[in-house]
Design a protein around this nucleic acid. Structure first.
Lengths: 128, 128
DNA sequence: CGCTGATTTGGACATAGTCTAAAAATAGAC
DNA sequence: GTCTATTTTTAGACTATGTCCAAATCAGCG
């Protein structure tokens, strides 16, 4: 609520419901997944409003969009830098702490002025 | 031609035209872009055949699919490991040599068994 | 040539996402 | 509180990417 207002987003009930869900999400939901979940609490919620709200939240820096799976954009409530691991069997996306991986050499690329980067890892999640 | 045959792909004229284009590509074309280009030489070529052929080439390891842009998969004729740089202004994708960047720490991830990885960099390409 | 299986084609279908116009809700002035 | 202007929401139309399908075509082989 205050979070939305402080970013200049008018906090309507629909926006609050969407924001509450996506900001607490531990998975990396697609817009469709957000819609399916939030709809249960807010049955008149339209798909357009979900897309609209998610895009506004992303513009204002409250969430980030990630292109990791084919066919769909996913939304990530973590806005601090981190890497991603994708389980090749389940397709699930996991966060990897920024500090766990060091990337060197990017400053030396003559042709490219790197503004941001992330490592995308694929494999199997270990069950422990 | 021999390349297709050696992988057990029957070299039809359509497949040859698609393969010739995508294997020589220096950009990272989408299926639609491949279709638009190859169609000029082969006007009856259908969209279905383009998708079909690209998927076969990818299955057989002659090209690789990459999920880097939203909304579409792009195809990459380089099958050796490398990283990618995306120009945030043009959307163009550039290859970054594997040797230019070192990633350390991935072996120490307790929860993940990493099979492959790449660094995705974003920024502005320097004009020199 | 004629048979059989593989390939191509165009269109139908599916899915992700955007756009639009009308209805509804909201904020601000009184 | 009521009125009005503005913003937001809604449902559905529309677009783009990609897959599926049945019919037509082609390739290899006896």
């Amino acid at each position: 609520m205050a979070m939305l207002r402080s970013r200049g987003i008018q906090p309507t009930p629909q926006r609050l419901a969407v924001a509450e869900y996506v900001l607490r999400a531990t998975t990396h939901p697609s817009a469709e997944e957000v819609w399916q979940h939030v709809r249960r609490r807010c049955p008149t919620l339209s798909r357009a409003t979900v897309y609209n709200t998610l895009n506004v939240l992303a513009e204002k820096g409250l969430i980030r969009t990630q292109v990791l799976k084919e066919g769909t954009v996913v939304f990530d409530p973590r806005t601090d830098r981190h890497h991603h691991f994708i389980d090749v069997e389940t397709g699930r996306v996991y966060d990897v702490p920024w500090s766990a991986i060091r990337v060197s050499g990017k400053e030396k690329l003559r042709d490219f002025d790197v503004q941001e980067y992330q490592v995308v890892l694929r494999g199997r999640r270990r069950r422990r």
